[in-house]
């Protein structure tokens, strides 16, 4: 007991020691595993491969990046990946907003936590299980086809639309949650004040609710955008022949590691640009 007390007292008098004990492990983790591997990625992106032996040649060169921008397939895949990420983000925002409006402001306060849990439940299920479930839904003669048949339509099948649809389903909770929180925290008296000054519901929504919730939509979009941009499993399962950046990285790892690294830096750069753009909306402070 007295030893414990003395230790506690010694720690109490040495704030720097306390801080270092607290942060050493996480900082090591961050520096070695995260920043370390990221810098290895960047450095190796500037190496090349011997085309006969597939051995990595550790000579500085920008050939890989030159190839990225000149070979049409690479360009197409990069643009397609960004397009998929944007489409998923927009779809998530469009679906999440009314949903969050209901859970945060329309539903009875007692039910709200329950509804939030319900929205988060899919996150508890395995990623693969969910994606394979979508594969079943979208397969030929599957649930989508069966439901659309009475209307003379058929499901989207496997391909780009299926990929967007499945990714939207997967990342939706990440969009709903920040919007729900923002709407829940929106002071009721701002809505009162708007009505008091003569605004109808539509005007209040456009002029007060939407601008105040927009940073949270941007915050949610950071999740949906970066998660979509990095995904390569969903597209393999429901994407048919569609290829995204992740697939190219995956297929290059064995034969041309420096090229895979160069491809891997693309989403990193895109996401940094995206984050910088979102910072202007104030999204980073509402994360």
């Amino acid at each position: 007991m007295s030893l414990l007390n003395r230790t506690a007292g010694a720690l109490y008098r040495r704030p720097r020691l306390r801080l270092s004990l607290l942060l050493t492990a996480p900082l090591l983790w961050l520096a070695v595993l995260y920043l370390g591997s990221l810098s290895v990625l960047f450095v190796s992106a500037f190496w090349t491969t011997d085309s006969f032996t597939s051995e990595v040649v550790k000579v500085w060169s920008t050939d890989n990046f030159h190839e990225l921008f000149t070979v049409p397939v690479y360009r197409q895949v990069i643009l397609r990946s960004i397009g998929v990420a944007l489409a998923v983000t927009v779809l998530c925002a469009v679906i999440a907003f009314p949903l969050a409006f209901y859970t945060a402001r329309v539903a009875k306060p007692r039910r709200r936590p329950l509804l939030v849990v319900a929205i988060l439940t899919p996150l508890w299920a395995s990623y693969l299980v969910k994606v394979y479930a979508w594969r079943l839904i979208l397969s030929q003669g599957g649930l989508a086809d069966w439901m659309l048949k009475p209307f003379g339509l058929s499901g989207p099948g496997f391909g780009l639309p299926a990929t967007v649809l499945t990714l939207t389903y997967l990342w939706l909770p990440y969009m709903v949650l920040p919007i729900h929180t923002a709407l829940e925290q929106l002071p009721a008296n701002l809505l009162d004040a708007s009505a008091d000054l003569g605004a109808r519901a539509g005007r209040t929504f456009r002029s007060v609710v939407l601008p105040m919730v927009l940073p949270s939509v941007a915050a949610g979009s950071i999740f949906t955008f970066s998660l979509s941009l990095g995904d390569y499993i969903t597209v393999q399962i429901v994407g048919g022949k569609t290829q995204l950046i992740g697939n190219l990285v995956y297929s290059n790892i064995e034969l041309n590691l420096p090229m895979a690294a160069a491809l891997g830096t693309v989403p990193v750069v895109v996401i940094v640009v995206y984050l910088l753009a979102m910072r202007r909306t104030g999204a980073l402070s509402s994360l």
């Binding site: 002071p187 000054l197 002029s207």
Partner: peptide, 15 residues
């Protein structure tokens, strides 16, 4: 919004 009355709120409720 149909009443010719305006309110000053306790915590101001500025946008």
């Amino acid at each position: 919004f149909e009443r010719d009355v305006h309110t000053v709120f306790q915590d101001y409720a500025l946008f």
